[in-house]
Amino acid sequence: MTYGAPTGGRGMPGGLTVTDLVVTYPGRPPVEAVRGASLHVGPGETVALLGPSGCGKSSLLGAVVGIVEPASGSVSWNDEDLTTTPVHRRRFGMVFQDGQLFPHLDVAGNIGFGPLMAGMAADARRDRVAELLAVVGLEGLGERAVTELSGGQRQRVALARSLAARPRLLALDEPLSSLDADLRRRLAVDVRDILRSQGVSALLVTHDPAEAETMAHRVLRMKDGRLL
Rank of each mutant, 00 (worst) to 15 (best):
R221A: 14
L116F: 13
Y25L: 09
G140K: 04
G73F: 00
T2D: 15
R185L: 15
G27A: 10
A37G: 12
R154S: 12
R10A: 15
T83M: 05
T46K: 01
A5N: 14
G66K: 01
A37V: 10
M94T: 08
V136R: 03
L116E: 15
G119C: 09
D81V: 06
G42L: 02
V200I: 10
G152Y: 06
V23W: 05
R166S: 13
R168V: 12
V129D: 08
Q153C: 08
R89E: 14
P175M: 06
L149M: 00
V64I: 10
V22I: 13
P70I: 00
E80P: 12
G142A: 10
S178K: 06
L82R: 04
L61E: 03
L105Y: 11
S72A: 14
P209M: 03
M215A: 04
D127L: 13
L61C: 07
K223G: 12
D193V: 09
L172W: 01
S197D: 15
A48N: 07
R168Q: 13
G112L: 06
F113I: 13
V107W: 01
S59H: 01
L133V: 10
A188S: 14
V200K: 00
R166Y: 07
A130K: 10
D127G: 15
L16P: 05
R192W: 00
R184N: 06
H104M: 12
T17W: 02
P26R: 04
A108D: 12
P43E: 09
Q155T: 07
G112N: 10
A63F: 03
I67W: 03
A121I: 12
L179K: 02
V47H: 04
G36I: 00
A202D: 05
T46E: 07
G36N: 02
K223S: 15
F92R: 00
T46M: 10
L39D: 07
A37C: 13
T19I: 06
L82Y: 06
P167K: 00
M1I: 14
L50T: 02
L49P: 02
G42Y: 01
S201M: 03
A122N: 15
